[in-house]
Design a protein around this nucleic acid. Structure first.
Lengths: 149, 149
DNA sequence: GCTTGACCTCAAGTTGACTTGAAGTGGCAG
DNA sequence: CTGCCACTTCAAGTCAACTTGAGGTCAAGC
């Protein structure tokens, strides 16, 4: 089995070495051994990192992603749990879709003041409904594309 | 003009008083005066908060949201910026949709090991593509709907 | 006049996901 | 054997967006 130095895995996956160490620290990623001091990873680690990235995209926390891996490292999730996640994702997608449409509308709406626009006001009530649902906190998302500025 | 105590505004908007003070601190929300020590807000503050919430949902940082308000407090957003956000949202939606499908697939897939399943592997390459696009960092996202249990 | 309680200020703490820095180590090229 | 330099550890720092806590103030009700 071909083994990968942390630097190589970092390059392959695009994930900084410090992050890989961090992931190992929190038990999210396992190295298969050492060569001297140096961690060695196996090639499936690349896939694992892809899975992790995927989980992050889905809005899972690292802790949650960790829980989605079984002992042997293959994803091992009860079906019901997966369907639950999928449902949650559906919700999220619906919300984001509405939001996207709203943004596009606002971008094109000819009304002087957006408050004059009924569509915008409906959007407002939508936002109001979603406000204060749960405690705000730091979260990870797909990075926004960097602002042109 | 009817004026609102911070507690009243908090109740109306669902935003904790501490957060309202914080928002005033960073210049995101203005109180119109004081009665004794107590901040007084006007009724448009409720709308403003809805807008702020909306901005947050769209993935804007508070700093950015602040910049989206013009001097007089009405939202004043460059169209291009909004379209950019909407595009980013589109990306996110696409990703989440694929992910949702993948989750559902995994939930039903009969393959012993998911890696044996071509569908799953396609998902992996998708994730790999999205990996390491840009430097990770703290960011805000739409909160996941709370997990059932 | 005293208590109550909703507000006040300001500093410090929290969270998740990392990054950074200092000080040390070890494999390999020359 | 020497030196380089990618790696190592561990603690501490960072970031956004708040929250919490300690100690203080004021308007109203009894």
């Amino acid at each position: 089995m071909k083994l990968l130095d942390i630097g190589v895995l970092s390059k392959l996956s695009g994930v900084p070495a410090s992050t890989l160490r961090y992931y190992e620290d929190i038990g999210l990623l396992q190295s298969v051994g050492r060569r001297g001091l140096r961690r060695q990873f196996d090639t499936p680690a690349v896939t694992r990192l892809a899975l992790i990235s995927l989980g992050k995209m889905a809005g899972f926390s690292l802790e949650e992603i960790k829980a989605l891996f079984s002992e042997d490292g293959s994803p091992q999730v009860p079906r019901a749990e997966l369907h639950l996640r999928a449902d949650a994702l559906d919700d999220q997608i619906r919300g984001l879709t509405q939001l996207r449409d709203a943004l596009r509308h606002v971008a094109e709406c000819p009304a002087e003041n957006h408050m004059d626009c009924p569509k915008f006001r409906r959007l407002m009530t939508f936002a109001a409904r979603s406000t204060g649902r749960r405690k705000a906190g730091p979260g990870k998302s797909i990075r926004m594309p960097a602002r042109g500025g």
